[in-house]
Design a protein around this nucleic acid. Sequence first.
DNA 1: GTTTTTTGTAAACGCCTGTTGACTTCTAGC
DNA 2: GCTAGAAGTCAACAGGCGTTTACAAAAAAC
Lengths: 200, 200
Amino acid sequence: MAQRKSPTRPRPAAPPRPRDAEQTRSEILHAARVLFATRGYANAGMREIAAAAGITPALVVRYFGSKRDLFIAAIESDIGLGPFLGPDRATVGRHIARYFFSKPVREADTLSILLHAAGEPEVCDLATELLAARVIQPLARWLGPPRAEARASLLLAIISGTWLFRQALPMRAFTGGPDTALASCMAAQIQHVVDGLPEA
Amino acid sequence: MAQRKSPTRPRPAAPPRPRDAEQTRSEILHAARVLFATRGYANAGMREIAAAAGITPALVVRYFGSKRDLFIAAIESDIGLGPFLGPDRATVGRHIARYFFSKPVREADTLSILLHAAGEPEVCDLATELLAARVIQPLARWLGPPRAEARASLLLAIISGTWLFRQALPMRAFTGGPDTALASCMAAQIQHVVDGLPEA
DNA sequence: GTTTTTTGTAAACGCCTGTTGACTTCTAGC
DNA sequence: GCTAGAAGTCAACAGGCGTTTACAAAAAAC
């Protein structure tokens, strides 16, 4: 049988990466979250993610199986408005608006990842299912009648639209801080929906 | 000099496409708009667009130069809320909501194309500039004080968020018709912003 | 001390992409 | 009728993609 060449190439002087599987795995996941959130699923390449994690693309595959499985792992973390859904309903609008207009734009948040999944045939369904289960349903329960699910959906649309133009499709008006006119308008708007949204 | 082979392959029996440059150009543009709107910039391939137009990818390049130039041509058409910005301010919320919840989901509208440009490094800036010039500015002028630009931005966020979850990231609650609870909530919501958005 | 398993790298694979150049074929002008 | 140019097809290119295979080396097990 044919014998393979064993060139024993000169090993480079670069110090080898310390072997820590758990840390490597979390570094891959963090890099993937950042790149999925900023570039979207299609534009974030495996080589780019691997380079950001300081490793080789083959290792990403070994840890997570495939790009799609990596995406699933990247969105399987905390998402939802849970922290805001407390007993104090009178100021929740201001709190949510302040939170989203204080958030650093380039952070690796799950909402950005999911919004970037729009139109990606591979991961679009996953994104919508996650949003329905983790955002719409708890929010509708917290809101209560009347028209709980419609009001919850509308809140998701407001927040997502705002965050879309702040993070993914950045427009000047949306990139300011929590003390801008837009932030206070958003707060009033959210509060209006929370309070029951009387018919126009 | 080397002479090229001239194989004179047998011509297939398929009837040749009628030669009409103007019609071909508009068919390419329509196919591009549909595919950019449904699949996004990255996922809509030149071969796919060419096939939808019934021609060859090389011809798409000859008509439009490059994929990016084709995208520019695809968004250089009517966009904006112009038709709604009339003298009747009391019912504009209902009109806009009814329009967007009556629109067929798979139509090739410019808003979908622009939302799908999120995160695409090649075309992201174009999309935001077009939205600012053709939507935000006229809308702010029509709205008037107080905080015209902030309210205009908020309206864009509401409409875009709603349309995003109806078209690009389709969720059950958003795919209904103009008589659903969500549509009437959206109408009330828009009207509230148009009317001046009193502080919460 | 030797063997086995884990953790990592390097190079390639097949496929798909946008784009190009050479080539036909229809059509309009003379 | 002949010719020039427009309209369209075909095949290939270079490069990027996700993924796989082969291999090296450190750590762990015995």
